[in-house]
């Protein structure tokens, strides 16, 4: 909450988009985390955004991350009896992470982040110009 609410709005969006970038990084990093137990396999994470009024003003719609949801997709089952983590039947389980979809999400998140940085900079310039009025 401040006298310059645009900073709060753009800032909340940058926070939310950076959470999204973190989840993409986590998903890509764990794309090959194999396990012998289907219940212990890594599950892709995805943040859920929602609108949040800044300073109690409905006209000022910031963004908040409501939750980080885990994918419900079943893990991929592969027959690799020689794998050290294979279960008794010789299967290993890999998380169902689609690297292409994750890269698309990454690009979208970073573009949105940049757009908000632009808004932030414009608002800062305008505020400085207004503060320096008459000098």
């Amino acid at each position: 909450m401040s006298n310059l609410p645009i900073f709060d709005v753009a800032g909340s969006a940058m926070t939310a988009q950076s959470v999204r970038l973190s989840t993409v990084a986590s998903n890509l990093a764990n794309a090959d985390s194999i396990s012998g137990d289907p219940n212990a396999v890594y599950r892709a994470k995805q943040p859920v955004f929602s609108t949040q009024a800044v300073a109690g003003n409905p006209a000022l719609a910031g963004v908040q991350v409501m939750e980080v949801a885990e994918s419900t997709a079943a893990p991929l089952k592969r027959y690799e009896p020689g794998h050290p983590l294979a279960d008794a039947q010789g299967y290993v389980y890999a998380p169902d992470v689609d690297p292409v979809a994750q890269m698309v999400d990454l690009i979208s998140a970073s573009r949105s982040y940049q757009a908000n940085v632009e808004v932030f900079n414009s608002a800062k310039e305008l505020a400085m110009a207004t503060l320096n009025m008459g000098r």
């Binding site: 709005v9 939310a16 999204r20 006209a59 757009a115």
Partner: peptide, 9 residues
């Protein structure tokens, strides 16, 4: 600015 912030909401 709120519109741009909520582009993915």
């Amino acid at each position: 600015s709120a519109n741009i912030a909520n582009a993915d909401t």
